[in-house]
């Protein structure tokens, strides 16, 4: 399998200040950041809320509770991956109803297209979240540059 495309991660797509009491409100706040940068279309907020309600993406990983919300490519303007570390955890329903809702400490929004690269990235992320030490390093980051580096430096290994 080819190495994941680390260029999808960018410091300006790492957000530490998106405080939201719920997942839908987090999506609204994220849209306000992503839309001006030209990553998502106007249809994105309603599409991602609907998708998350029907097919939730909260996960309990060995590294902690996270969520990986994403929508169909037609709502994406150009591929990206946004990393949100909210000031307070945000509740997401567990993927496939396999467990109780999770208080996500990190939300990774996959702005995916049909080019195939998302599989490598998602697999690399899941491998990373299987390792408690990597996750401790990621969760300790306070800058966009630090976060991108903490994640992509562990890719392709």
């Amino acid at each position: 399998m080819p190495s994941p495309d680390a260029s999808l991660f960018k410091p300006e797509l790492v957000f530490f200040d998106l405080a939201a009491p719920s997942a839908p409100e987090l999506f609204d706040a994220l849209y306000e950041r992503l839309a001006p940068m030209g990553y998502v279309r106007e249809s994105w907020p309603s599409a991602i809320k609907e998708r998350e309600a029907s097919y939730p993406t909260g996960l309990l990983t060995p590294g902690g509770p996270i969520a990986i919300p994403h929508v169909d490519p037609e709502h994406i303007e150009r591929p990206y991956i946004a990393v949100v570390k909210p000031p307070r955890p945000v509740t997401f329903e567990f993927m496939a109803g396999m467990g109780d809702p999770v208080a996500a400490e990190l939300v990774i929004n996959l702005g995916i297209t049909r080019d195939g690269g998302q599989v490598q990235v998602l697999q690399a992320l899941m491998d990373l979240f299987g390792d408690a030490e990597s996750v401790a390093d990621i969760m300790a980051q306070t800058t966009g540059e630090g976060m991108v580096s903490a994640i992509v430096s562990r890719f392709g290994g």
């Binding site: 309990l60 990983t61 496939a96 899941m126 299987g130």
Partner: peptide, 23 residues
């Protein structure tokens, strides 16, 4: 399945989340 299963398809069903997270 990586989504909720609320139907009987007549074949064995497995938990996709386990393969995603490794747990």
């Amino acid at each position: 399945a990586v989504v909720k299963v609320d139907e009987d398809y007549g074949i064995p069903v497995f938990n996709g989340v386990a393969f995603l997270t490794g747990m």
